[in-house]
C-alpha cells in the first residue's frame, strides 16, 4: 500500500501541499483529480522522490520510499521526457537497467512492451522521429518496462487520440488487475469515472474527497434533470435541500439533498408547463468534483 501522510510542501509563498493524506492499495486504480494548481503534480513528485516534502512521509508497504522502493515505481511525468535522439528500444533498455534489471531481462521486457503497444516497427527509430502519439506510447512503456509494483502517472491521457486512450485504459486496467497499485491524475473526469475504482479529489494541497467511485456517487446528491415546455420560473419555488446546478438547452438539473423529495420538485416543474422529459440519476463524478470544490469554483 502506498501511504502519503501529512505531506507539506511550500514553494516560496505558495503552499503546494497542505497536510495531504492519501492511501492506495495494491490492485487499486485510483484517479487523482483536482483543479490546476491543486497540488497533484507536487504530491506525485513527492511520491516518487523527485521532490522532497517539507514535512510528512511517503511509504510503500510500510517502508519509507527509499531508492530501493523508487526503482520499483513506474513514473510518467506530467511533461513528457525522453532522450529525443536516442533510439526507442535502446532507450527503454537503458531506463529498465537504471531500474535495476539485468541486461537480458531488460531486453525481453522491452520487446514485450514494444509489441504490446504496437511500437515494434519503430524500435530502432530515434524518439524525435515518432509521432506525438507514439512518443506517448514510448513514455508509457518507459513507465512499465521494469515491471513496477506501483504506477504513478501524471496526466497520462493528456493529448491522446481516442484509440490511444483505449490502449492506455486497457493497459492500466491490466496492471491494476495484476496487483499493481495505479495512481493517475487527469482532468478528464468522465474518463476517471469510467476507469477507476476509486478517486481522490485534491484542492489547495489537501484531499477533499476520497473513496470508492460508486459509493461516492451513491452517497452524493442525486440529480433530477427536468425539461418543461413553458416558463422556467418554477425553479424559484424549489424547496430547501435542493439546488439548481445546471441549465442547458432548457433542461434544468436539480441537486437533491438527502431529505429532498423528487416528486415535490416534479410537481413544481409541471406548474411551469407540460413535462418534456424527466430523469433521476446518481451524480456524475464531475458533479461530485464541483460539489467538493463548491466554495472555490464559479457556478
Amino acid at each position: 500500500m502506498l501511504v502519503l501522510e501529512q505531506l507539506q510542501r511550500r514553494f516560496g509563498d505558495v503552499i503546494a501541499l497542505d497536510r495531504l493524506d492519501l492511501e492506495v492499495v495494491a490492485g487499486e486504480l485510483c484517479g487523482f483529480v483536482g483543479p490546476n494548481g491543486a497540488g497533484k503534480t507536487t504530491a506525485m513528485r513527492c511520491a516518487v522522490g523527485v521532490t522532497t516534502p517539507d514535512a510528512g512521509t511517503v511509504a510503500w508497504e510500510g517502508r519509507a520510499v527509499d531508492l530501493e522502493v523508487r526503482r520499483r515505481i513506474g513514473y510518467m511525468p506530467e511533461e513528457r521526457g525522453l532522450y529525443p535522439r536516442m533510439r526507442v528500444a535502446e532507450q527503454l533498455v537503458y531506463l529498465a537497467r537504471l531500474h535495476g534489471l539485468r541486461s537480458a531481462e531488460a531486453a525481453a521486457n522491452v520487446e514485450f512492451w514494444l509489441d504490446r503497444l504496437g511500437l515494434t516497427a519503430r524500435r530502432d527509430s530515434p524518439v524525435e522521429e515518432l509521432s506525438l502519439g507514439n512518443q506517448q506510447r514510448v513514455q508509457l512503456a518507459a513507465a512499465l518496462v521494469h515491471d513496477p509494483v506501483l504506477l504513478i502517472l501524471d496526466e497520462p491521457f493528456s493529448g491522446l487520440d481516442p484509440i490511444a486512450v483505449d490502449v492506455m485504459s486497457e493497459v492500466l486496467l491490466e496492471r491494476a488487475a495484476a496487483g499493481v497499485a495505479v495512481v493517475f491524475s487527469s482532468h478528464q473526469l468522465d474518463l476517471v469515472e469510467d476507469l477507476c475504482r476509486s478517486v481522490a479529489v485534491v484542492d489547495a494541497g489537501r484531499v477533499v474527497l476520497r473513496g470508492d467511485v460508486r459509493e461516492l456517487k451513491r452517497a452524493g446528491d442525486r440529480r433530477l434533470r427536468v425539461a418543461v415546455d413553458g416558463d422556467p420560473g418554477w425553479v424559484a419555488a424549489l424547496p430547501v435541500d435542493t439546488e439548481v446546478v445546471a441549465r442547458v438547452n432548457g433542461e434544468v438539473t436539480v441537486a437533491l439533498g438527502a431529505e429532498a423529495d423528487p416528486g415535490e420538485v416534479i410537481e413544481l416543474a409541471r406548474a411551469g408547463g407540460p413535462l418534456l422529459h424527466v430523469r433521476l440519476e446518481e451524480p456524475r463524478l464531475s458533479e461530485l468534483f464541483r460539489d467538493a470544490l463548491q466554495d472555490r469554483l464559479p457556478r
Binding site: 513528485r45 516518487v48 522522490g49 523527485v50 531508492l67 523508487r70 526503482r71 515505481i73 513514473y75 511525468p77 511533461e79 513528457r80 521526457g81 525522453l82 532522450y83 529525443p84 531506463l95 537504471l98 531500474h99 518507459a142
Partner: peptide
C-alpha cells in the same frame, strides 16, 4: 540542458540520485 529541456531528467531522478 538536453536532459533538462527534454524533461527526461525528471524520469531519471525518479530512480537515480
Amino acid at each position: 540542458i538536453e536532459e533538462k529541456g527534454s524533461r527526461v531528467v525528471e524520469l531519471l531522478v525518479a530512480t537515480v540520485p
